[in-house]
Design a protein around this nucleic acid. Structure first.
Lengths: 132, 132
DNA sequence: GCTTGACCTGGAGTGCGCTCCAGCTCCTAG
DNA sequence: CTAGGAGCTGGAGCGCACTCCAGGTCAAGC
């Protein structure tokens, strides 16, 4: 199956401009072109885009992804280097996840605290009503 | 206890420039000044900075934090609005956490895959050695 | 054959969140 | 008394990751 840039955009969630931008900076291989010179993405292209967007949501910088992309997929040397990049990024991601969980606890604590404050004020208002 | 901007920077992890920047954009109340006109942060200022950095690590934008900061801490109305902001942000954070966990699974899968590829190549090399 | 709409290119512009700088003041130590 | 270091201000600059634009091509439908 071949896909237009609009389809690639819809399936990846990346804007059309971003797709062309990624191509320019070497993040994605220039896809084939149809008879009219328009980009035609393969299924594998789409899978690569999906992987890219996943790594982007984890905050992996474009430069790192470019490095990863530039290695190509063939051979044990590329495999080892790609794996090293992923292992490294995995560590920062795990650390970040731990931080986020800690922040979530803080947020939950704060929310509960504000709720408590509001209940207290509410209680006071009711007392005032009762004494009026 | 009073703290210089250098101490506030060290304790919060924010750069001195960032501290002044946050003050300019209304993220932090202008701290008191010492006799020489230099900023002097209170313990409570530091606690606010700690909260800010936590929210920043969760990706809360400065504009949202400014809104939160502008509400002040007094009264049930401010409390309710602050709580709403936190509840809203909490939802995006929880969603983001789920995404990150999914990405982590993908990374783990890929790492294992690359490791497998390397083992296979290694096996082939050993066979080649054995047959040589 | 003309319009419409998707797509093309190269390059400029944008928003966020800092970061740096020049030129100044003030305090402290020697 | 002076040299050095921390801090001050207003404003400019920067890096990242897009995003937008002008001006053009191409294929399809009326």
């Amino acid at each position: 199956m071949r896909h237009s840039i609009a389809q690639a955009s819809a399936s990846s969630g990346l804007s059309i401009d971003t797709l062309r931008y990624y191509e320019r900076i070497g993040l994605i291989e220039p896809p084939e072109r149809d008879a009219g010179g328009r980009r035609s993405y393969s299924d594998e292209d789409l899978r690569w885009l999906e992987f890219l967007t996943r790594m982007r949501t984890t905050g992996m910088p474009l430069a790192m992804l470019r490095e990863y992309a530039a290695l190509g997929q063939a051979g044990p040397a590329a495999s080892a280097r790609r794996r090293r990049i992923l292992v490294e990024h995995r560590a920062t991601l795990v650390a970040h996840l731990a931080e986020l969980r800690a922040c979530l606890d803080v947020i939950d604590y704060k929310i509960e605290n504000y709720a408590r404050i509001e209940r207290e004020f509410l209680g006071r208002d009711q007392e005032m009503e009762a004494s009026a």
